[in-house]
Amino acid sequence: MPTCARDLLVSQSLIAAIKKRHADVELDVMVPSLLAPLATRFPEVNQVFNAPEPSQGLGLHWHVGRNLVALETHYQQAYIVPQSLKSALIPVAAQIPHRVGFRGPWRFGLLTDIRLPPKYKALADQYASLAYPHGQLPSAWQAPTLSLHIDTENQTHLIDQLDLAPYAEVSTRPLVILCPAGVQESSRQWPIAYFARLAAALIDQGCRIWILASYKEVQAAEQICAALSPSQQEFCDNLAGRTSWTDVVDLIACAQALVSNDSALAHISARLARPTWIPLGASDPEYAAPQGDQVHLLTYEALECQPCQRPRCQASTQLACLTHLQPESILESLLAQLKMQAPPVATAEAISA
């Protein structure tokens, strides 16, 4: 399976398509150990195995495949999503007779059913096509509705462990989660100052804020908290660097709304059917962005270069696709979803004052 969280979540479409065609089949997946807990939340999955990291050697990948033989797993078919030699080596070592995947370097002879990447625009449809003969989705194809398991016991534990007791105020203070990081490309990073302005306006309107980010992105979360007044900070909980993937799933399930970059956290929110707002920037809304009735994809369509899909902006306007998506573009519709009236959004100067 894919080696990053966002692609793993997108590839759930393949798992769901296989399950749709073969309801009685037990599906096991193999992903890098850091993503394994997230894969356990897929309702279609029976068992999760740890895969070597892509940077690790061919010998270890072969050894992992041989371990599957020792476990007497007796798999009949493997779907290999990454297009690398190493990922295709594991099912060969595991003696799995039918091995399906896309064409990639040095994979001839390792795959028994090798496919050209299909021309479907959505990455989820490209992955799902592996489940069908010749990579052709049915003419009446509709993307499956995807979900994730929620662990209510872990929710309760987290609220206590992370000192989130004010969550009990949710009846009077709707909970909005902000995910200000989760992307490596500057062309997909909504300005941190905009997250701060949105947080201040939501708190002033009566919302509680949780900030979710990884340990690598603590600084971005701290910048948002620092921009709030002392009274506003009482209603903002910074959870950056304090959660695992499974914790994130259970915490997002608590929210009434979520605002995120185009990241794995936005996909998790969409899987949980939470109202989700995503400033896209350079991302193509039809390629790998989250989908669903509760997903609001925000784009600045006045630019000819958008969506460019480039990691860095090369236009003279310098990230106008993101900077023109002001907090007001999210605040009004988000509060309407919460049945609240939108107040004026504070300027950056007012927040800093």
Rank of each mutant, 00 (worst) to 15 (best):
L58Q: 05
H267M: 04
A39H: 00
L35I: 00
N238I: 04
P343M: 00
Q223A: 10
T317Q: 12
I159P: 02
E301L: 10
R21F: 02
D163R: 15
T347M: 01
S316H: 10
F108M: 13
P285H: 04
T3E: 05
T246E: 13
A93F: 04
C207M: 08
A289S: 15
S55A: 09
A39L: 03
R173A: 01
V45H: 00
P91R: 03
A201P: 01
I192A: 02
L89Q: 02
G135D: 00
S147L: 08
R107W: 04
L27W: 07
H267D: 01
R21Y: 07
G241H: 06
V295N: 01
E349Q: 10
S147H: 14
I268M: 07
Q341T: 15
A346Q: 14
W245N: 11
L325G: 02
L212H: 03
A350Y: 07
T323L: 03
D7T: 06
D28F: 04
A289V: 08
K86R: 14
L162P: 03
A23T: 15
L162Q: 14
L272F: 06
S11Q: 09
Y300G: 08
P32F: 02
L146A: 05
R173L: 07
P275R: 05
L85C: 12
A226G: 07
A200Y: 09
P290D: 06
A39I: 05
G101I: 04
D151Q: 11
C236W: 00
S352L: 10
L322Q: 04
L27D: 01
A5S: 07
D151P: 08
I18M: 12
Q155G: 03
S352W: 10
L198K: 10
R242Q: 15
A240N: 03
V345T: 11
Q326P: 11
D262T: 00
E286T: 15
Q233C: 06
W106G: 11
V249G: 00
D293P: 11
A165S: 14
Y120G: 00
L322V: 05
Q318W: 14
S186Q: 15
S84C: 03
P52E: 00
P180Q: 06
E286N: 15
A17E: 09
D24C: 13
L116G: 05
T40F: 01
P307Y: 04
K216L: 13
A36T: 00
I192V: 15
A201E: 06
P174L: 05
Q233G: 11
Q314A: 09
S84Y: 01
E53M: 07
H149D: 15
L298Q: 02
E217F: 00
Q95N: 06
K121Q: 15
L178C: 07
S129Q: 03
Y75C: 01
Y132P: 09
E304V: 08
V259W: 02
T112L: 10
A193G: 09
R197E: 13
A270V: 11
G101W: 01
S269E: 01
L164T: 05
S329G: 03
L280A: 06
L110R: 12
T243V: 09
V48W: 07
A124P: 02
I192Q: 11
I15V: 15
P32Y: 08
P144M: 11
L228F: 04
D113H: 12
V248P: 04
W210K: 02
I96N: 00
E332V: 13
A165V: 10
